[in-house]
C-alpha cells in the first residue's frame, strides 16, 4: 500500500498535474477570499470556502481521471494484480495519494484565518471546521472519481463521466425540490429508479432472471407499503434527492457548524466508492 501511495504521489509531481491542481485551487480560493473577506470586510473564512465550493466539482476529475484508467491502458494493472498486493491496498494507496494532493491545497488555505485574525475577530473553530469539511467534501468526490476512472481505460472518458456525475450531485438538491411531493409521483419516481437499477444489474451480471426477480420483489414491496401506509412516501423523493446531493451537505459547514452527520456522510461515500473500486478490480479477473 505504501509503495502504491509513494508511486502515485511521485507521479502527480513528475507529471505536473499535482502542481497545476494546487496552483489553480489556490488561485480560486484566493479570488474567493478577495471578494468575500477583503472586499466584503468579513472575517469569516467559511464564507469564502462556501462561495467557491463548486470548483471541487470542476477540479477533482482532473486529479482522478488517470488514477486507474492509465493503469488499464498501459496494462500496468497486470503488474499490480499479479503481485502479492490485494485489490484493497491498491485502491487505498491510490485514494490516499490523491487525497494528499488535495490536502496539500487545503493545508495552505489554513493560513487565511490566521491572516484574517490580524484584522478582526476570527472564530477559529468555525473556520477550521469548514476547512475540514471542505477536505472531506473533496475526498468524497475523489473517491467517486477513482471509481469512475477504474471503469474505463480512457482518461478523457473518465474525466467527462466524472464531471457529468458530479454535476448531477450538485443539481440534485434543486431537482428534488422541483418534483411534486405527492405520493403518486413518489411511487412513479421510485419505480423509474428501480427499473434503472435493474437494467444496471442486468448489464453487470448478464442474468435476466435475477434482474427481473429483484425488480418484481422490490416493486411489490413498494406497492404493499403504498397501499397500507401511503403517508410513508410523503416528501420521500425530495429526501432521496437531498441525500444524493453531495455538495449541499457542505452548507452546514459554511454556517460555521461542525456537522458530524455531514462528516459521517462524506466518510460513507469515500468508503463506499473505494469498496466499489476494489470490486471493479476483482471483477476483472472474471471478465
Amino acid at each position: 500500500m505504501l509503495a502504491i501511495y509513494k508511486k502515485e504521489l511521485r507521479s502527480y509531481f513528475t507529471s505536473m498535474i499535482g502542481y497545476v491542481f494546487i496552483a489553480f485551487f489556490l488561485v480560486i480560493v484566493g479570488i474567493g477570499f478577495l471578494f468575500t473577506n477583503v472586499f466584503g470586510k468579513i472575517a469569516n473564512f467559511e464564507y469564502s470556502l462556501s462561495s467557491i465550493s463548486f470548483i471541487v466539482v470542476l477540479l477533482t476529475p482532473l486529479l482522478t481521471m488517470r488514477l486507474m484508467a492509465e493503469e488499464n491502458k498501459q496494462k500496468t494493472d497486470q503488474l499490480l494484480l499479479t503481485s502479492p498486493l490485494g485489490a484493497g491496498s491498491i485502491v487505498v494507496g491510490k485514494l490516499l495519494a490523491v487525497i494528499t494532493i488535495f490536502g496539500v491545497g487545503m493545508a495552505i488555505t489554513c493560513i487565511y484565518p490566521l491572516i484574517l485574525s490580524k484584522y478582526g475577530t476570527v472564530q477559529f473553530g468555525a473556520a477550521y471546521a469548514s476547512i475540514l469539511g471542505f477536505l472531506m467534501l473533496g475526498a468524497a468526490y475523489l473517491s467517486m472519481g477513482l471509481y469512475i476512472s477504474s471503469l474505463t481505460e480512457n482518461q478523457v472518458v473518465a474525466a467527462v463521466i466524472s464531471f457529468i456525475v458530479f454535476l448531477f450531485t450538485v443539481v440534485m438538491d434543486s431537482l428534488g425540490s422541483a418534483i411534486p411531493t405527492d405520493n403518486v409521483t413518489a411511487i412513479i419516481m421510485f419505480t423509474v429508479i428501480l427499473v434503472v437499477v435493474c437494467v444496471v444489474l442486468y448489464l453487470m451480471m448478464h442474468n435476466a432472471t435475477i434482474a427481473v426477480a429483484v425488480g418484481l420483489v422490490v416493486e411489490t414491496a413498494l406497492m404493499v407499503v403504498y397501499i397500507i401506509k401511503p403517508t410513508m412516501f410523503d416528501g420521500s423523493v425530495a429526501a432521496l434527492f437531498g441525500w444524493l446531493s453531495v455538495l449541499s451537505r457542505y452548507n452546514q459547514f459554511s454556517y460555521g457548524i461542525m456537522d458530524i452527520t455531514g462528516l459521517i456522510y462524506y466518510l460513507s461515500i469515500i468508503v463506499l466508492f473505494a469498496f466499489l473500486t476494489t470490486q471493479v478490480i476483482r471483477k476483472k479477473r472474471w471478465s
Partner: peptide
C-alpha cells in the same frame, strides 16, 4: 506479460 507493464514516466 506480453506487453511489459512499465510505468513510462519513471
Amino acid at each position: 506479460p506480453e506487453f511489459p507493464p512499465l510505468y513510462t514516466d519513471m
